[in-house]
Write a protein that binds this DNA or RNA. Structure first.
Lengths: 330, 330
DNA sequence: ATGGCATATGTAATCCATTACATTATTCGC
DNA sequence: GCGAATAATGTAATGGATTACATATGCCAT
């Protein structure tokens, strides 16, 4: 593999001039630049970016910490991150933490060893990751919760949940069950808050028997719905805190012979692409997943490049999308 | 940020000894190692991997070229890649090509500029990517088609498609429509081959009017199904070449008042997680997505590390998963 | 024509860890 | 107890691009 020295030799110039011709062409004669370009082509030169990065102490790459890339929502956020990184000349390291602190810590080594310039964290902030909170490297949260410190990007989870439950209440529902994520999960906590606020506002007494905790998977949504439908005086609506669990719930309800939404309303959260195409299509909260990733990436790269330190919590707009799966209570 | 020199000073040793203590401890006294470790802790040392990588001309990272990370199937393959890369101490660069040759070529620069040691290609091989076929760097295809050269990993797409259509024929269907991917897509080509083989074997005359070309999205599956259901003497079964389009087709059929599978059988391909939880659940071909990614990654890293050059085409087993969406013809 | 200045190019130091080669310390055998 | 062999450590070169500083070239004004 030819190096800058080969180019310099081929062009009869010094490596300094070659470097300048390539990186800061305005510092070099038109003629020189042409000679360098010819030499580059002649020896098939590709700069060794490891060397450049070492010299400049920059890697021009960012690390995305994602709890699971197979989750469509996170995949969308990641796509948004990638598109901005690409535009700004950065590469993306994929750090799939599989929800493990260990893996997360291990991946953070990429920054500490200079292979990445900063981190975008997609896991919500549980509040006890002291290491990360004290991080000396640039870090931005892309799917924040109310606990998440700046700089971060999120939606108003509690507000969105409240809107959804308001929607169900407006449709006449009173017995509205919740299929939550893991009890300690900050997103679940925020959304649960919105759920209860909506119930309170409508004068509906909160009934713990109508709450089940899943793990965001369709299987857990199926299981939760099966249980909830067996409760005496069963709910007429299921508020699921993500789309996957809602899809699982639809399946469970249908298997029990219930018709959605006629016999049971079911709603989701996230608006992954499958929500619009499930049968029935799913009423949900649209999160601007790509936009959140993109915004987080912009903030991160601005920080890395020292272009103003954005230290705000960006709350992006969500949207209630009413589709077939929610309907009037019977 | 402290460097190896700081450690050497703190320990009263040379940088060479420090390096040895850390990388090849057996070359150093027990006592020395302890002194080095203490110094490392004292100055909070983290090796600069950019420097190490420059010296060794290795980056210990691989580039994954994926047509779209938001596609659940590719996300699963990527998850498989990541798990092996992790186990073997490599990082993963995410190269989302968005089906653009341009982006693909741009991402390949990562290898040519030494930021990645090799490439895993998830796009099927159209046969005209001369650049990549002549690549001087290690490259492995993870979702190959019949055209794909070794080393690569794939399933028997034609065989799987044939099995699926055989299954429909066995259930009594004769008018079996196909919802294909883009006409030129190698996976679509292979699967179309299997479709026709099955029809021929059953003595069913191929009817071009029963073929539609989608773009793998649910929307395109919906559109294709709508058209196919308007054909005179409409088909009793739809063979969709991926799960997303099948899910779109289910939605279209249901919207038309048809019951799946009672009035119309619909089958998919891939067995993404949503296939098991759609309503009705989807008969499909299970591809070992994670295993394909993992295998490809193993092969790639073996190549990178010079541990035998596996030059075979690995055909992993698929499986016909019969669920609710396929049923007897009416 | 010459000092002064801007522009273009060259020389060599630098980034940091690794490692070939050199040197010093230690152990073993007889 | 001494030379040979082995082990431990040190010195300095190396990887490839960038860049501070030095030098050379060209142009203008006086």
């Amino acid at each position: 593999m030819s190096s800058i020295i080969d180019v310099a030799n081929a062009a009869g110039l010094s490596t300094a001039t070659v470097s300048r011709a390539l990186r800061t062409p305005e510092k070099v004669t038109e003629a020189t630049r042409a000679r360098v370009m010819a030499a580059v082509a002649a020896v098939d030169y590709r700069p060794n970016l490891l060397a450049r990065n070492l010299r400049s102490d920059r890697s021009f790459s960012v690390l995305v910490l994602v709890p699971g890339i197979a989750n469509p929502f996170f995949a969308n956020v990641t796509a948004g991150i990638e598109s901005i990184a690409w535009r700004r000349g950065y590469s993306v390291f994929l750090g799939d933490t599989r929800d493990s602190r260990d893996r997360e810590a291990h991946y953070e080594q990429l920054v500490e060893t200079r292979l990445a310039d900063g981190v975008i964290q997609l896991s919500p902030d549980y509040g006890f990751n002291a290491r990360q909170r004290a991080a000396t490297y640039p870090i931005v949260h892309a799917c924040g919760c109310e606990l998440t410190q700046a700089p971060s990007v999120r939606i108003d989870n509690a507000g969105a949940a409240r809107e959804m439950v308001d929607h169900l209440i407006a449709a006449g529902h009173r017995r509205i069950a919740a299929i939550s994520g893991p009890a300690a999960n900050p997103h679940a906590v925020d959304r649960m808050k919105g759920y209860r606020t909506a119930l309170d506002a409508a004068g509906v007494v909160f009934d713990p028997a109508l709450v089940r905790f899943g793990d965001w998977t369709m299987g857990s949504g199926h299981a939760a719905a099966s249980e909830l439908l067996a409760v005496p005086h069963r709910p007429t609506a299921l508020f699921s805190m993500n789309d996957e669990m809602a899809i699982g719930a639809i399946q469970a309800a249908t298997a029990k012979g219930l018709r959605v939404p006629h016999d049971l309303a079911i709603t989701g959260f996230d608006d992954i692409s499958f929500a619009a195409h499930s049968t029935p299509s799913l009423t949900t909260i649209a999160q601007p997943a790509e936009a959140m990733g993109a915004k987080a990436c912009e903030i991160l790269i601005d920080r890395i490049e020292g272009k103003g330190a954005d230290d705000t919590v960006h709350v992006l707009p969500h949207e209630l999308i009413v589709r077939q799966s929610s309907g009037p209570a019977v």
